[in-house]
Each structure stands twice: as C-alpha cells, then as structure tokens.
Write a protein that binds this DNA or RNA. Structure first.
Lengths: 339, 339
DNA sequence: TTGTATGCGTTATCAA
DNA sequence: TTGATAACGCATACAA
C-alpha cells in the first residue's frame, strides 16, 4: 500500500492535520513534532496522491490567463489546439482559462493586457515580449504571487517560473543538415530571415551558418533578406535577392514569409531552387504538397501549448513546480511523405 | 459549477446510489427511474470527474500484465522507458505492472507466458505474435473479462481492445522520400529487410517501392536481402549483394541489422553509398554520428510504451475505452543535426 | 500548538 | 428496487 498522510500521522503519533501543516510548511508546529513528522515522511517515502489533491483543490477555483501575440500568425493555430486539449483535461480540477490575443509584438499593449487580466487570474502564460516594461510587470506579478510561464518567446532575465518554447539554434542546424544532404554539400544559399534583430530568427540563422561552416564548407551563404512577417514585403525582397544573385541554388526561410519567397521563385522561373522552411502551417501545407518546399523544420507547436498549460495546472492544483527552467521543443523534419 | 452525480440525484429526485447504478449500468434499477436519470444526466451534460473516479478506484488494486518480445532487441529500450514513465504516473491509482520479456517471436512461449500471468492480472498489454494459438488465447482472455491491447505488433483479426504501434507503410514511404531528396531522384538501391515474411517489414518495403514508382522513377531497386535480425548474417548477405551489384549507390535497411550492413559497406570501401535506416537505438546513434547512416526513420518508441499503458490505466480506472482502433505513431526523420 | 470534522466526486456495502 | 453511509487522500475551518 502507498504511503498516505494518515499513515504518517499514525506512525508519528500526531494528527493528520499536523502532518499536513508540516508537509506543506503552513507553520504553527513545534520544532520537535516537525522534526519527527519530517523524518517519518522521509523514511516511508511519502508521495502525495494527485487524485486526492485534485479533488480537494476542486473547492477552489483557479483562473489561468493566457496572452498570445497570435493574431494573423498561423503558427499559433496548433499552439492553441494544444492549449484547448490541456484545458479540456483540466476541467475536472476547477480550472478556467482566460485567453487573450494581440496582433504583433507591441510591448505597451501586452502590459496593458496583463494589467487587465491581473485581478482575475491566479497564473499567467505569456508570449513574452522581451522589453523592460514587460519584465518589470512580470516582476510585479511575482510579488503578488501570480506566477508567469513564458510561452514561445522568453525574456532574457526576470522572474518567470519557466519557459516553454523552441530551440531556435537546433532548428537552424537541422535546416542546414537537411540542406547539406539534399544539395550534396554544395550550394549558393540565400537566407530569408524574419527580422534581423529578433533573437529567435538570429539564432536560427546562426545555427544554420554554424553547420555550413563546420560540416558543409561547400555551402556558401551569398545573401540575406528580411521578410518582416509580411507576404508582400518578403516577395519583393526575394525578387531583389534572386535577381542580383542568379547563382543562388537554395533558399532557407528562417521565419514566416515562405509563401512570398516561393512566389518570387516561381515568377522568375527558378523552380529548380531548393527551399527549406520553418513550421507547418496551413499555407505551408500547400507549398510542401506542390513540391515547392522540400523540407520544413517544425517545433512542436501543439506540444508548446499543451505543455505550458499543463505545467500551470500542475503548479496550481498539485503544487508541483516545473523541474526544468526551459522546456525546449524537438526539431521535427517534415517532408512530403511524412507530414 | 460542473455537473456531479449529486446534482443529478437532486434533480431527478433519487439517491446518488441510484444515479451511479444507472450511469454505470449496474442493473437493479426500475425502467422508469432509469429513464428519468438518464434524461437528466443527458440534459445537464454530465461528465464524470476523473479525480473522483481515481480516488474511489484506489480501493481496488489493478494489475496490468505486459509481455514483450524484447530480449536482445534494442528497439524496446525506449518502449520500456515509456512504460515506466506511465507506470510512475499511475502509482496513485493503485496500478501494479507485471512486465515479462521473451526472446524472439515464439508463439508457444508467448501463450505459456499469457497463461502464467492470467490469474494475476486484470489487463494485458501484448507484443502479439499473429498466430492462431495467440489469437485464440486472446479470445479466451476476452471471455474472462481481461482486455488486451496489442503493442508494436498487431493481430490480423481478433478481440483485442485496440492496437498501439507503427505505421510501417508510412515509415517506408518516408524513407523513400528522404532517399529521393538526398539522391536527387536517381539511384540504384539495395534493400535490406528483416524477414521477407514479417508483415511490418513487408509493409515498409512496399511503401518504399510505392514512392519510388510514383514520385522518383529514377530510383531503381536492384536487389533485396534479409538481415534476419542477425548481425553476422546481415553482414554476409550485404557483402554478397554489394559484390554482385557494384552499381548500387544507396541502401535502405528496413529493419534491424544496420550495423552489419554498414560493416560490409566499409570493408568494401564503398562509403560513398547512402544508407537510410530505421529506429534510433544505441548502436544506430554511433552510425549516425559517424555519418555512415544519413537518415533514420523512427516511430516514437517511447510514446508506444507510454500510450499503451496509459490507455490500459484509463480503461481500468476511469472506465474510458480507447476511442481509436489503432493508435499509429508518426514517422520521425532523424539526421545528424536533430537527434 | 494541536486535533477534529467536513467536503471534494465517485463507488461499494449495507440496510431497508 | 432503492437509500443511506462510509471510504478513497487531501485540505481547511474550527475547536480545544
């Protein structure tokens, strides 16, 4: 039989209430009894029963806030599916999810949204924008006992409980690995990154370059453009790049904007160019099916959503803090045959 | 607030016990009250609380038997890790796992093991060997109310609750897709399958051939050997094949035995040959790291183990039957950079 | 500082 | 055929 609070109470000659006070550091216990109870619990190897905790926690009602910079960004479709799945599974624990979405990465708007949610929630999952205002606001939440998990984008420093998101470096490395295999190690490459200054995009490109240098010296990066997450802009930039670098044989799109890049490629009659991209959204699906994109590197968007909410629920209901600082997703390679 | 049995009892003017009898088809209820209760439950949209069920189930003790043909087969290392993870998470529900392993696929031994476990278990997870004796034994378990989930290998027909395992066809297709990308659609291919007559291996090869024919007509399969899951045998067979077909530029290993094949390739000084394999075991790790194997197609072994036990626990504790007939794993592409 | 009683939702065992 | 009650493990309000 498993070890319960009741058993510990009997063994240590105190009441169940006292054991609870000791094990959950609620105070009002004499040092002597505390020592005894702790020792007994240790010896018996006490592990709290999750079902019992969940049931008792049901008397409380927890609200979890979620803020995503997802509007107009297909990538988050699957993230939200993961969130909803985790939400369904948490209904039994008296959890309510308050989801808010914003368009673009406007720090002021994010802070405003945080203020708005604050009085209603016990926990926040945040697609964080890494600016001083946001970091400061997270600190404020922490002071007021509202823990924050950052989702998909992290802050460089601050009081978030943990981060769930991509391993951008690995994603770029994997893209380069695939490029190396497909191109036989020899290519003139154009890179389309989202924004030169966005950390994640920068890391992807760095990972890509790193593998080119170390494992595929025959692969040379000849130009780089920004897509700015804008189809029209990425199309124009791609046109410029391909016109001024006719030697390009392969393109790595390290952010959204693949559709625009591919349109430019097709219009120039350069469908021989090998395109490797990121993520597997609805619009990417079409490009992979048509053979325009040879491979795309994904970062488990569903799992990102599922895991983040799951960690939050576990924290609130079972009092179990995340045991990692960063939950990094795997780099998944998708090609025509295995999507 | 969520709908509970208590609430249904009040609304229908009966006791909680009666509601329980109706909802769980325990009998001894008059047709009239049954109708009322069912209607009320329906209207209110009753969803049983998992934590409550789990807690109540704890008074019972369930034993789950697992039989794996895993001895000497590295593939199952990760399957077992998944099982153990699910086991840990199920301790709270009074679940005990009885794991038994056998060497090779001997149906008689498997049936014997099933008989041995039968009196001790309430559920069986079986790495099934698809023979009449085993199918018959599964039927017998079914009659005696011991449900069976088949893991990794399925039976063609019979009374198993569901199957958790690979999608072999998709695995072969993915391998061909990667081969096509790497070889630029043109290759002379040797295939090393495990056993010609094993269903899974056959399906992998069929999927591979199918993609070659439809998408990469420039890829020709020039020879086929068996590895028989035996390093020495696969080495010799590979030597024979490579000697008699010097035109071979690529090899697809559709089962275990990759190490033997690679040894043959190296000894013949043919390291230019592109090798694509299956699974990511300890020994495969070395081959990928050395660049001998360019890509390997995996089928979520951890998830196979985790999911199968998870479904079993859910069935016993929460009375939730699997809602799929087959839980098929994804084909994951692993290359040097993303393993 | 400590103990007791009650409830979370479900199920099983009595008693009626 | 039904209802009442106790139990699963944990948390907490209240009493001592």
């Amino acid at each position: 039989m498993a070890v319960t609070i009741k058993k510990i109470a009997e063994k240590s000659g105190v009441s169940r209430g006292t054991v609870d006070r000791v094990l959950n550091n609620r105070g009002n216990v004499s040092p002597d009894t505390e020592a005894i109870v702790k020792k007994v619990a240790e010896e018996l190897g006490y592990k709290p029963n999750i079902a019992g905790k969940a049931l008792a926690a049901r008397k409380k009602r927890y609200n979890i806030g979620i803020i995503l910079c997802s509007e107009g960004n297909e990538f988050f479709d699957d993230v939200m599916k993961g969130i909803h799945r985790a939400e369904e599974e948490s209904l039994d624990y008296g959890i309510t999810v308050l989801m808010r979405t914003i368009k673009g990465y406007d720090a002021r708007q994010q802070v405003q949204m945080m203020d708005e949610l604050k009085p209603q929630i016990h926990f926040l999952i945040l697609n964080a924008i890494d600016t001083p205002e946001v970091i400061h606001k997270i600190e404020e939440f922490y002071q007021d006992n509202i823990e924050v998990i950052t989702l998909n984008t992290d802050i460089a420093s601050g009081k978030r409980l943990c981060h769930v998101g991509c391993n951008y470096t690995k994603s770029g490395e994997t893209a380069a690995g695939m490029m190396g295999l497909i191109m036989g190690g020899s290519a003139k490459i154009g890179i389309a990154s989202g924004f030169f200054h966005v950390l994640g995009h920068k890391q992807r490109v760095a990972g890509f370059q790193d593998v080119c240098r170390k494992r595929y010296p025959g692969m040379e990066i000849v130009d780089r453009i920004e897509t700015r997450d804008d189809p029209a802009y990425s199309y124009e930039q791609a046109l410029l790049m391909l016109r001024s670098h006719e030697e390009i044989t392969a393109v790595y799109v390290a952010a959204s904007g693949t559709a625009g890049v591919c349109r430019a490629i097709e219009e120039l009659g350069r469908s021989d160019i090998t395109v490797i991209a990121c993520d597997y959204t609805e619009s990417m699906k079409a490009l992979v099916n048509r053979g325009m994109v040879k491979a795309t590197i994904c970062q488990q968007p569903f799992t990102q959503g599922y895991k983040s909410l799951n960690l939050a629920v576990n924290y609130l209901v079972n009092g179990i803090a995340p045991y990692k600082d960063i939950y990094a997703m795997k780099s998944e390679i998708k090609i025509f045959e295995n999507v």
